[in-house]
Design a protein around this nucleic acid. Sequence first.
DNA 1: AACGCTAAACCCACACCGTGGACATCCGCA
DNA 2: TGCGGATGTCCACGGTGTGGGTTTAGCGTT
Lengths: 212, 212
Amino acid sequence: MTGTRRGRPRTPLLSRESIVAATLQVIDAEGTAAVGMRSVARALGVDAKSLYNHVDGKDGLLDAVTEHLLGGLVLPAPTGDARRDLRAIADSFRDQALKHPQAAPLVLTRQLASPQALAPVNAVLAVLRDAGAGTEEAVHMLRMLLATLIGTLLREVSAAPAFGSNDREDTLTASGLPALVDAAAHLARFDREAEYEYTVDLAITAVLHRLG
Amino acid sequence: MTGTRRGRPRTPLLSRESIVAATLQVIDAEGTAAVGMRSVARALGVDAKSLYNHVDGKDGLLDAVTEHLLGGLVLPAPTGDARRDLRAIADSFRDQALKHPQAAPLVLTRQLASPQALAPVNAVLAVLRDAGAGTEEAVHMLRMLLATLIGTLLREVSAAPAFGSNDREDTLTASGLPALVDAAAHLARFDREAEYEYTVDLAITAVLHRLG
DNA sequence: AACGCTAAACCCACACCGTGGACATCCGCA
DNA sequence: TGCGGATGTCCACGGTGTGGGTTTAGCGTT
């Protein structure tokens, strides 16, 4: 029985990309909490310590995944219409977030300085500058837009899917707080699409309005 | 040597609040990653399993901390000036977040339905209704404001303190992306206060503007 | 062609984690 | 007076990240 592998294989079993891909599969299937050197290695049919040859520990692994997802953003070519362009960039973020909802908190939470993270920042700044913003103003606006986008997407990916249950509404009406019971019906519902639409549109409108 | 305690003590050693307080100390000192049944128990001079008598596992412990922090919000009495009132509520969030920066991600990330979480929601809705918003519109606006606030605070509490190093600026200028190198100097700096001010003001202005 | 050097895979081991289960002790109430 | 439940202890189990050492294969140099 020569079952166990030993020593360096003739052809490499692992690569940074294959590891990232496997990790993403684990995340999509079982959530970020299920990610671990051992579980990812198991998914690849490999010993846990082998991952260390391609990735800098667990944290480095998660960073690599984040980088990969940011790299997957497709930034559309600017049309010259600032509203449309900003919206397109935001949509690109959202698409990626919804493609891997379980992984979204990673991207939205960790801040990297990798080129993959820099490209979208550059895109937003370019649009804002074209729309007439000064350098410093553009940076402020970028941060405001990013904050709003991160906030909504974070909420959206972690919103319970079975939110229609009037369980939640009952809790609200039982609170006794007047403005709450009044809005209980609307608070209990959560239309992801509509909510994203409203929030992002309002933020972009605010920025463009300030630009005059 | 009767060193080891055994059986139920004459006077309770633990309480939900004492556990939450100890956990908060651990978080403030060593971050959320350092929180664990064992570490918190150690800080209290107690066995880990004892915590289970007052708290529902690790996740319940973190929920309890979140609840405690939300309960610490001081919501000022409304003045009737919507801008001022919304700003005051946001400031209250920020104060609490900066008081325990390491714990902030907890509050900003977990969504609870406890009364402590409901009170601020009610406050915001009340102000919006007073300012003339319809029920449904008020809920949308609430979510937009919350998203923006969460986004900025999340960034603010995790912004590296030694951000003044021109290390970061160099990375940016080296990226070659034109809008980035142009704004590198401003991107490298991060004035927490100014950034919060700008972002929250813009969001509130947007909401009030839409209300006419 | 033969040498080493390094990279890529393995296994063993350690300290730590969350928590299930069994036990001891004391409080409050019937 | 007695007894059930609350509170705290200890032991144990399977899991984690990773430090250290070992084996083998490929590559660059002489």
